[in-house]
């Protein structure tokens, strides 16, 4: 390892840090012949929550996969601590960067504690399979995600929200400064969505973790993101704080949707309200008459 590279033992950078440990430069991503993302630059602010939004098939999940070394770039590079991801041994990456795919699958019948304990793999070796640090990290992860009571339960028996908390606990036990989440709220009802996003927010604030998440819901993105990246057709259309970025023009440009953007009555962040729904001609006339 070269000397100038920051050590992973450094304390996580605080929320005020303006560094960029993770960034993509001139990134082109393709599946076989189909190019999904072309010549994209993005810098992930340390210690912040970055949310990537955009319409279906805009390349947001593809970008996240590349940031997590699941997809090799066709051109350009993803840099972690200034070093090209492809050149860092995958286990070293796993010590610094954790990821939660969109629909992860666990071995059948595995208990929550067993699942979470497997997040410690990058810190273990053939002769160090379970250290006191592993033990501490797992119980802390269970504690923080409120899954300690579920520890003995089988993953198969849990509700969607509980299961997602267990997966996050596993990513947490991995003890990485950077966490990538691919649509962590998909398949959850609204209460569980809020629960998961609040958890992510807390981990960011209390532990200074850098979070990059792909979210479907623009309003949720505006509520939880410090930094918003809006994508369309494999390009970044706009990025910055949600208050600056989310406007009716942007929504039209990115999603092709007419909308009104008002302040969220609870948080004051931008709230996107789509234009009036379709109504039948007869109804329209009735509305006008009344």
């Amino acid at each position: 390892m070269s000397a100038h590279q920051p050590s992973t033992d450094q304390p996580p950078s605080g929320r005020l840090s303006s560094g960029h440990r993770l960034e993509a430069r001139g990134l082109t991503l393709a599946y076989d012949a189909r190019t999904v993302v072309e010549d994209l630059d993005v810098r992930i602010p340390d210690g912040r929550v970055t949310v990537i939004v955009g319409p279906n098939a805009c390349g947001k999940s593809t970008l996240l996969r590349a940031l997590g070394r699941l997809l090799k770039p066709a051109a350009g590079a993803v840099l972690l601590d200034g070093q090209e991801l492809a050149r860092i041994p995958t286990k070293r990456i796993a010590q610094r960067l954790g990821l939660l795919p969109q629909s992860p699958t666990a071995p059948e019948g595995i208990s929550v504690a067993d699942l979470v304990s497997r997040g410690r793999q990058p810190h273990q070796s053939w002769w160090q399979q379970w250290s006191p640090e592993d033990e501490a990290a797992v119980s802390e992860a269970l504690e923080r995600t409120s899954t300690a009571d579920l520890a003995e339960r089988s993953m198969d028996e849990l509700s969607g929200g509980q299961r997602q908390r267990a997966w996050i606990a596993m990513a947490l036990a991995q003890g990485t400064d950077i966490l990538l989440l691919d649509e962590p709220t998909t398949y959850l009802d609204i209460a569980h969505q809020v629960e998961v996003l609040d958890l992510v927010r807390r981990l960011n604030v209390e532990r200074g973790r850098t979070v990059v998440a792909v979210l479907h819901d623009l309003n949720q993105a505006a509520r939880y993101a410090d930094h918003l990246v809006a994508m369309r057709d494999g390009r970044v259309v706009a990025q910055g704080p949600p208050g600056d970025v989310v406007t009716a023009e942007l929504v039209r440009e990115v999603f092709g949707l007419d909308s009104v953007v008002v302040p969220d009555p609870v948080t004051g962040t931008p709230l996107v309200v789509p234009g009036a729904p379709w109504v039948a001609e007869a109804e329209k006339a009735a509305v006008v008459e009344a």
Partner: peptide, 24 residues
């Protein structure tokens, strides 16, 4: 087999999760 037995702790996940855990 001993080497494989240890890797089994992460190989039994989906591919993305297994790679995320640092498995080659």
């Amino acid at each position: 087999a001993l080497w494989a037995a240890r890797a089994q702790r992460s190989i039994s996940f989906d591919d993305a999760t297994a790679v995320g855990l640092g498995l080659r």
